[in-house]
Design a binder for these strands. Sequence first.
DNA 1: CTTCATACCGAACACATCGTACGGAAACGG
DNA 2: CCGTTTCCGTACGATGTGTTCGGTATGAAG
Lengths: 198, 198
Amino acid sequence: MSGDRRVRRTRRLVQQALVELILEKGYDAVTVTDVIARADVGRSTFYAHFTDKQDVLFSNLDELAFLHRLPAAGETGELFAFSRPMFEHVREQERLVRALLGRRSGGLVQARGEELLAAAVRNELVAAGARPSAELDLLVVCVVGAFMGLMRAWVDGATSASPAELDAAFRAAVTPGVRLALPPDGCAGSGPVTVVGG
Amino acid sequence: MSGDRRVRRTRRLVQQALVELILEKGYDAVTVTDVIARADVGRSTFYAHFTDKQDVLFSNLDELAFLHRLPAAGETGELFAFSRPMFEHVREQERLVRALLGRRSGGLVQARGEELLAAAVRNELVAAGARPSAELDLLVVCVVGAFMGLMRAWVDGATSASPAELDAAFRAAVTPGVRLALPPDGCAGSGPVTVVGG
DNA sequence: CTTCATACCGAACACATCGTACGGAAACGG
DNA sequence: CCGTTTCCGTACGATGTGTTCGGTATGAAG
């Protein structure tokens, strides 16, 4: 990989320690002192690699970067194709996601996630024939808000629904409204777009 | 009013100081020491009234809590009657809301706001004839998520839409999906319920 | 294996913030 | 006017932060 083996080791230990501690105590309650104790790493070593706690948090984000290769509409012929794979993926990476997105960590990561998702959703809707406009952007905000709301509720343990049920709930709540913002059937460009309900 | 004049004065000074400082530095960067300096209040006095920073934040929220007297469905015969008044109210209290809900303050207030709103929305839907169930709760999460998403986008300056436009966007995105979860017209108990579009 | 670079350790440091305690001064309500 | 409550100011111990520095050990390259 890149560089010294000792470096990789240290970074990995610190990242893992932070995730564990967030899950135990919540982001705010975790101190740098906690992290270096759990990681069994010298204090000066920590600050040689990271500037602070938040820096470690964000360094973890790269591992969640499957966000960048979301399936796009047109490929699958289905709107919001990201929904179910996302819920599935989250269940697999449960520990990390819970640490990053949960109510116990700052809203920092959530904000970034919303941006990425909003861009993807907007592209999808435009590809499906929606006219770019201020109204469309507000619709996108609503769609993303609903999705992230479900995600938060799930991660915070407010619901025990399965990925399939969450996906269904998301579509049931959102697609009827989205449909009205799309042009009537049978004309759009890139392939057959269907809004699936279950 | 309630109690000693000195008490009211102190609490008011502290609350105002916190809001000012959040707007200047962001919630996380504000310290109790900052607050008591700005409020010109003794340290021990602060802790005589509040347990910590977050306590002050939440005490502010209560005064914003026209959330508790949200017009319920059945009274107005209109679903989500809270929407437009809320956006209007937010515009008036812009400084405070920006301080409380903005990306600069922790997700604390947002989480609490979501809870209050979720309870209200759920009551409305049940009053409108929806059967309490796990699916209903997920629908509520979506509705609240969409609303809060709009709120955040607005507060963060991502859109310059008017309260009326935000209200319209919210309803356009959400009501079609909600309708499908309600029983067909003409039977529910408490008065005529109509889902208004614009 | 030797050499050299560099990452690590550990302890100490100055600094900031927190939450509490206490006696005396001030302001309140009646 | 007087008893009560609140406020002030200061000081305190505890905890966390981010940096510095000399010595050690572990890595990679020849």
